[in-house]
């Protein structure tokens, strides 16, 4: 590569990275500025005297820690539920003999192609009839099983040496014991991918939690953050940015630590076949 094209490549890369990073940099810098600094023209990009006042303000204005807890509880339950249901069903598809196996698998795949929004009205009515509106139940129950998880784990299980499975069964190992003592420990990478994927999906949800939560105490973090604007709209964007930065911490940590797993989970669908 010539010196010119190398410089050009670095320049382009730097520009693209800046654009992709800008909202995060802006949120962090803005959350530590005074309202005057943030509103000044020409725009200031680095706070002269970083202050943490906005973080204290936002924690006082909304029950942010409670919303944090709600999001963690809901996302962990959804991830755990999907890991459990998907492991069981993927095991059945990969190892067990049964009639109509392909047809049943097709039913599982079909769930991936039905947009949640197409079923959201009856699901809302169901939750209302069951008295589950504004409870964790409404936030968690519909997402405990997903066709994608079964698909992902089945692929992984199918690559498992068949001989090992048969040997274990010949030795009198039951399905449940084989599953818990041999298969699950050996499938940890795939399970981690699915777990992180399901957690992030639940964590990022917006439409459904908006519908089924009615009080601040039951709101998830996403809803709480979006409502910051209603509290002090254009008056203090640095206040909104402080809340956003607090909300971003767990996902930022997760993507830098678990990037490998996330990549695998996200691209699993892309590279099949």
């Amino acid at each position: 590569m010539s010196a010119l094209s190398r410089t050009l490549t670095y320049g382009l890369l730097a520009a693209v990275t800046f654009v992709l990073l800008f909202p995060l940099l802006y949120a962090i810098a803005g959350s530590m500025m005074t309202p005057q600094e943030l509103a000044s023209y020409p725009p200031v990009l680095v706070p002269r005297q970083p202050r943490l006042q906005s973080f204290a303000d936002v924690l006082r204005a909304i029950p942010l820690l409670r919303e944090y807890a709600n999001s963690v509880i809901v996302s962990l339950c959804v991830a755990a539920g999907q890991l459990l249901t998907a492991t069981l069903s993927a095991y059945a598809f990969a190892f067990l003999r049964m009639p109509f196996r392909n047809a049943v698998f097709a039913v599982f795949l079909a769930t991936m192609f039905i947009p949640w929004e197409a079923t959201i009205i009856p699901n809302y009515l169901f939750m209302a009839d069951a008295g589950l509106i504004n409870t964790y139940g409404a936030l968690i129950l519909p997402f405990l099983a997903a066709g994608f998880g079964t698909f992902l784990l089945r692929q992984f299980f199918l690559s498992f040496p068949r001989d090992l499975y048969e040997a274990a069964l010949v030795d009198g190992c039951g399905h449940l014991r084989f599953l818990t003592t041999i298969l699950v420990p050996l499938s940890r990478p795939a399970l981690a991918s699915l777990g992180i994927y399901a957690f992030l999906q639940a964590w990022n949800q917006y439409f459904w939690p908006l519908l089924v939560t009615k009080t601040e105490e039951m709101q998830t973090l996403q809803i709480g953050i979006s409502r910051l604007r209603d509290i002090e709209s254009a008056v203090a964007p640095n206040f909104i940015l402080a809340g956003t930065v607090l909300a971003l911490i767990p996902t930022l940590v997760l993507i830098y630590i678990g990037q490998r797993h996330i990549v695998r989970g996200l691209t699993a669908g892309a590279l099949r076949g």
Binding site: L20, Y26, Q222, S226, T244, A247, L248
Partner: peptide
């Protein structure tokens, strides 16, 4: 690695910043 940063944003957090 840096370009993966938008992943940390949800629809809600991104919309609020935008």
């Amino acid at each position: 690695t840096l370009m993966a940063t938008p992943f940390a944003f949800s629809v809600a957090t991104a919309s609020v910043v935008f």
